[in-house]
């Protein structure tokens, strides 16, 4: 029996009103991702990468077409249902880390679990497990301002992974990292993808990232130009 794709985007278009005119950010996109894929949307700035990622992450809705994530119709979700989908099944990793500065590393990772009403013991175990994945257990009590860029991004990965999501969406995750840290981060994510089977979808134009991807979806002017297995 053929497995259902974990992400299924059918004929999706997205337009925004800009200066009284409709700007088409995405034009009739068709895309499917299976569970456990390590894929990336690659394209220049303004090509629609982030818009597509936002729709898949239930932060936005398509103007036309349908987007299904874990069999949930993104267009039909209420705000609370979309929040619940993100809470339980989707992890986000951002370009600028976006850790909450007043909380410790432990608390930043724990925050995702607070929304799921887990017990303190469950949270502690899950947080330490996630910090172990990214090699930061000895930094648990530090504040983000005491961490390097690479360490901060690893905390962000732990925060995205702590709730064991089905999908992790990473928007330019290496853009603020030096080459060495970027490779470390990508290796960590690849390891988590292989060990836990989590689906990773990147938005990037960083060649370092492309080297790690199994599948590259080229986006230009809101259209998929090419969708290929990575031969690198």
């Amino acid at each position: 029996m053929k497995k259902e794709p974990i992400i299924h985007v059918k004929n999706v278009s997205k337009s925004y009103p800009i200066a009284g005119k409709e700007f088409m950010a995405l034009k009739q996109i068709d895309l499917s991702l299976n569970e456990g894929e390590f894929a990336g949307i690659v394209g220049p700035s303004g090509s629609g990468k982030t818009t597509l990622l936002n729709i898949i992450g239930s932060l936005d809705k398509p103007t036309q077409g349908d987007a299904f994530v874990l069999n949930k119709d993104i267009k039909a979700l209420s705000h609370n249902e979309a929040a619940s989908l993100r809470n339980y099944h989707i992890g986000f990793i951002f370009q600028v880390f976006n850790l909450l500065p007043v909380y410790t590393v432990f608390e930043n990772v724990e925050f995702a679990l607070l929304l799921q009403n887990n017990s303190a013991k469950e949270r502690r175990e899950a947080v330490m497990r996630a910090l172990n994945w990214v090699g930061l257990t000895d930094h648990a009590d530090k504040r983000p301002d005491k961490l390097s860029g690479g360490e901060s991004q690893r905390v962000a990965i732990a925060r995205a992974m702590v709730k064991a999501p089905k999908i992790v969406l990473a928007d330019e995750p290496t853009a603020n990292l030096d080459s060495e840290n970027a490779h470390e981060i990508l290796k960590t994510m690849k390891k988590l993808n292989q060990e836990l089977g989590t689906t990773f979808l990147f938005s990037t134009h960083d060649e370092k990232v492309m080297g790690y991807l199994d599948r590259i979806i080229h986006l230009r002017d809101g259209k998929i130009e090419k969708d290929e297995k990575n031969k690198l």
Partner: peptide
Amino acid sequence: YNEFGIRLALGESKNN
């Protein structure tokens, strides 16, 4: 607003 954005992305509802 930055903090709220992170919280929304992590799955907290607008209401909350």
